[in-house]
Design a protein around this nucleic acid. Sequence first.
RNA 1: GGCGGGAUGUCCGAGUGGUUAAAGGAGACAGGCUGUAAACCUGUUGGCUCUGCCUACGUAGGUUCGAAUCCUACUCCCGCCA
Length: 390
Amino acid sequence: MPTAEETAKMLERNAVEALPTGGLEAKLRLAEAEGRPLRIKLGIDPTAPDIHLGHTVVLSKLREFQDAGHTVVLILGDYTARVGDPSGRSKTRPELSVDEIDANAATFQEQAFKVLDADRVEVRRNSEWLDMSMMELFKLMRIPTVAQLLEREDFSKRYSEGSPIALLELLYPLLQAYDSVAVQADVELGGTDQKFNLLLGRDIQTAHDEPPQTIITMPILPGVDGVRRMGKSLGNHIGVTEPPEEIFGKTMSIPDEVMPLYYDLLLASEPDSALPPVQQKRELAKAIVARFYDESAADAAEAHFDKLFKSHDIPDEIEDFALSGEEIHLPALLADAFGLSRSEARRLLEQGGVSLDGEVVGNVALDIPATELEGRVLKVGKRRFKRLRA
RNA sequence: GGCGGGAUGUCCGAGUGGUUAAAGGAGACAGGCUGUAAACCUGUUGGCUCUGCCUACGUAGGUUCGAAUCCUACUCCCGCCA
């Protein structure tokens, strides 16, 4: 049985900050003394339907807590999603409909269980308690000052450059903080961008005569561009439910510089420096696929990758696309098959980005009889394929 | 409530009556090089029945041969005063 000190050290591995210093260890001792598991809180606002690798950094840390015998309280922020977390944002979040939020919450929960142990988790929705009375809200609003809120970098930046900040956004941290009161959190996790919100939770708990939580911030995983944080709205994410080939391919496209970070945050290991970089990245990509699927899927994804990008072959399975009509107008075909506009299709043709059975199609003969296209493989760019069927 | 400033393409941002589908940058896409990496080079980046046509500079009108550019109203944002 590891001591509280050892456990705390293990759990604080690769965290950016754990505050207050020694707080986690004290919480662990308390749990031991009271003979109960700690309640580890994570709040996720279901603003987008899918969980991506960025989320899994924090989820994996939660898993470690679970494995150490503690309870995870996963809060689906169905109520806060309607407010919109301003953290790190340069503009107000778009408003989501209740239906969207519900649908997102459902898939989120399901996907979170790809990482979490379903037996040691309590799933809550913050609409359970945030639909509060004005008096309760006033109590919250007495605690932080306007100056404290405006000092945050995201707000102060927006304020100084003249971008609007809705009063509601100022309120967001309070709501998240109140979640900690509602679920009696011992520890709360979040990305480094959540530090303010997490710390405010401590003040709000104290004001409600509850012991303040310990907070742990985790590093932010950069997206496939290697620069900005991974986020669906930034289009640089790798979703955990994406097909194995996609996860593999997207992982291969990350810049080398962030590879060690990916290894550390996603696999809790280091790249094998004896291997050439490309091999290191392959191992990374395979390990990530294997984590969300299995070894054989990882091997298949790698094989698929090689086929496409090493031997410039076509993939084993290509979706069929039914041709309609006798004479096929190429731009129209491309537009329908790949969801492009016809103008876009024309440009691609001009630039040699379209090929049929491996042969580049220029923009000369734009009308082709359907019979000539039957069974041929249409390719756009490097990785979009359709098999044509008359 | 009063006064002043502002709203431009995916984003940022130039443009104050006439080759302006709108400079520049970012992003994205395609091609080259490669390790489908990054960097770098080239091209493209509103739509279409595509050597032309249509639609676009917050919204709706107006002035003019001609408007993103001038006028009026409205909407929204920012600031100052209260």
